[in-house]
């Protein structure tokens, strides 16, 4: 099956990209002046203690061996011990990742909804399309953190509608995502609380991507609507919804799909700043605390996880594209 081969090819290149990423992270660690020994046992330890620590950390072995050990660790989920928290980086990330993933995914859904609204409203010339487009446009030109600050001033300080920081909702559920956990627990009030906390940071994160997705979707919808096969579909006597759903949509989603994946990837980077503005207890806060103390295992761990998410998202989009358009195959 060609479809399976395509899938296999994509997965293979995904693995290759992750391998390259791990190598880059390892090399960065090698050339950085962060001293893991000093970080673990303190700056004024005896030479014997230092030698023992070096041996324990494997620093006396040749680089290739150390890389393979690092790689083996990644595969088995061992990303070393944080200099700062003295816990396994994997445990730390598992603690903070759900908050970040929840924020990004929620923001992504918001971006998709806004993007589709943008495309459809300006195509069908809805009455409020103009102001909506203007608002989105202004919003997307502002940097994310500025947008977050303005949102805080307006909705928290002036109107008092939304909370300024934290996550709210059920905090000790199984998934670690407050909105999802609240819903799983059947606690609607907690879900509402979680939603209120999510709203501002998600909106700040979503406005830019929404415009990018909306623009791409609008232009491909416009192109598809003017194409010959849509004229053929109309001439067959199909109703307008039939033409739109069966013939227009599937032929228009491709560009929007890859733009969405790209934006979702960017959002995993952008979320770090937004988390800072809203003191959102996710990977961003963890990274922000790790950076000043050169906690390299933690920094590398977060980078690897975010990078892996980015690459995975784009691979999924590629596969989805080949499903939507049979002409796209290995190329």
């Amino acid at each position: 099956m060609v479809r399976l081969r395509f899938l296999g090819f994509r997965l293979l290149s995904l693995a290759g990209l992750l391998l390259v990423l791990s190598l880059v992270l390892f090399l960065l660690q090698e050339i950085s002046d962060a001293d893991p020994v000093a970080a673990t046992i303190g700056g004024n330890a005896s030479p014997e203690a230092i030698a023992a620590a070096r041996e324990r950390l494997g620093l006396d072995r040749p680089p290739v061996e150390r890389y393979l050990a690092y790689l083996g660790g990644l595969v088995t989920g061992d990303m070393g011990t944080s200099f700062r928290t003295h816990r396994d980086v994997t445990t730390d990330i598992a603690t903070y990742l759900p908050a970040t993933v929840e924020l990004v995914l929620f923001a992504f859904v918001v971006a998709l909804v806004l993007g589709v609204l943008f495309a459809v409203s300006s195509l069908l010339r809805w009455p409020l399309a103009g102001p909506f487009r203007g608002l989105l446009f202004v919003g997307s030109t502002a940097p994310t953190f500025l947008l977050g600050l303005v949102g805080l001033v307006v909705f928290y300080q002036l109107l008092g509608w939304l909370p300024a920081s934290g996550r709210g909702g059920v905090t000790d559920g199984p998934t670690g995502m407050t909105l999802l956990d609240s819903l799983l627990a059947g606690d609607l009030a907690a879900a509402g609380d979680a939603l209120q906390h999510l709203a501002l940071p998600a909106l700040a994160l979503a406005v830019g991507p929404a415009l990018a997705i909306g623009r791409v979707l609008r232009s491909s919808l416009t192109e598809t609507l003017g194409s010959d096969f849509v004229r053929t579909a109309t001439s067959k006597g199909l109703t307008e919804p039939q033409v739109l759903v069966r013939h227009v949509l599937r032929n228009s989603v491709n560009a929007a799909l890859s733009m969405s994946a790209l934006q979702l990837g960017f959002m995993f980077g952008g979320v770090l700043l937004v988390e800072g503005v809203f003191t959102w207890g996710g990977l961003g806060s963890y990274l922000a605390a790790s950076l000043p103390v050169s906690d390299f295992p933690a920094i590398a761990g977060v980078t690897f996880v975010l990078g892996a998410l980015y690459v995975t998202v784009n691979t999924v989009a590629d596969v989805l594209q080949s499903v939507a358009d049979p002409r796209i195959r290995v190329s």
Binding site: F229, R231, T232, S235, N251
Partner: peptide, 17 residues
């Protein structure tokens, strides 16, 4: 009651169906 045949059958047929 009506049927149409257009010039370019490549562009006049839906490529994904």
């Amino acid at each position: 009651h009506l049927g149409v045949v257009f010039q370019d059958p490549m562009t006049s047929l839906n490529p994904t169906m």
